[in-house]
């Protein structure tokens, strides 16, 4: 058994990096807009289908689809926040949660209608080439996903720290009124943020597709993991999301190893409940 633990930890880390990437988008949105985006997982599912169809119909390699899907999903996120969530929610936290829930219901069920519940996979042969790391064999696709996802967190951090848009976002996050007074367009900034969060999901989709399956329900699995990651990392904390994502990937992998495949995710949800109860501010978050 112990010989299995190390590979399980490694493969958990690989998956965890993707969780982290998905959660980065969610935590960014939470940190600035203070809303929990329930549709995040559904947007991931949508992005997975987009990448899949680009590959299936046009033969575009998932990694090469990044420059197409990323801007498209940024635009989609921007439009959703600006055109739907903001105007329909009347500013109430609960309404936002319900509207994003409604959005996810619409996306999920339309996907079910158009694409049926069949499971699809992209057969990208090289993604399953194995790479040996410290004696463990891992699929190339997962390793690429790990590296790319890990690289995004510092990039995002630099964006927030060193660009004008980044400082506008931080200003709005800290003090909305004040930002408004110094001439920052708050609604635009909110929408940009939502766009970036959605773009993270699109990137995750490009990285996931080569070694993952798609069904219209796949978003639901991810959204709960992403919530857990965000809460564990501390709502709104980018480094927190990264660490928590990796940690949860490992927890899931180990639970799967010891409790059996179907119970793998239970570790995540139990972790979620325990964190919410005992340390809702998360590992790196500020107190509520």
């Amino acid at each position: 058994m112990s010989s299995l633990i190390f590979p399980a930890v490694l493969s958990g880390l690989m998956m965890g990096a993707v969780y982290a990437l998905v959660a980065l988008g969610l935590t960014l949105i939470y940190g600035v807009l203070h809303i929990i985006n329930f549709a995040h997982g559904s947007l991931l599912m949508l992005a997975l289908y987009a990448v899949y169809f680009l590959w299936y119909h046009l033969g575009i390699d998932p990694y090469l689809a990044i420059p197409i899907v990323l801007p498209a999903f940024f635009a989609l996120g921007y439009a959703l926040q600006r055109g739907l969530i903001a105007p329909m929610s009347s500013g109430s936290e609960q309404n936002v949660l319900l509207i994003t829930l409604a959005i996810s219901m619409i996306i999920d069920n339309l996907a079910l209608y158009f694409w049926t519940s069949n499971t699809r996979t992209a057969d990208i042969a090289y993604a399953y080439d194995t790479v040996e790391i410290l004696g463990a064999f891992l699929p190339l696709g997962r390793v690429i996903a790990f590296c790319a996802a890990i690289a995004v967190a510092p990039l995002l951090w630099c964006f927030m720290a060193y660009t004008k848009t980044g400082s506008a976002i931080r200003a709005v996050a800290i003090e909305k009124r004040g930002a408004e007074l110094v001439g920052i367009d708050v609604n635009h900034t909110y929408a940009i943020c939502f766009g970036i969060g959605t773009a993270c999901v699109a990137l995750a989709a490009c990285l996931l597709l080569p070694t993952f399956y798609i069904t219209p329900q796949v978003g639901y699995t991810f959204v709960l993991v992403a919530f857990t990651t965000v809460v564990l990392g501390g709502m709104g904390s980018l480094p927190g999301a990264l660490i928590a994502g990796l940690l949860l990937g490992v927890i899931e992998s180990l639970c799967g190893l010891f409790l059996g495949e179907s119970l793998g995710q239970i570790g995540i949800f139990l972790a979620f409940i325990l964190i919410l109860l005992f340390k809702p501010s998360g590992l790196l978050g500020r107190a509520r």
Partner: peptide
């Protein structure tokens, strides 16, 4: 699932 789209 169309009913759920409508509900939403």
């Amino acid at each position: 699932g169309l009913n759920f789209v409508l509900y939403a």
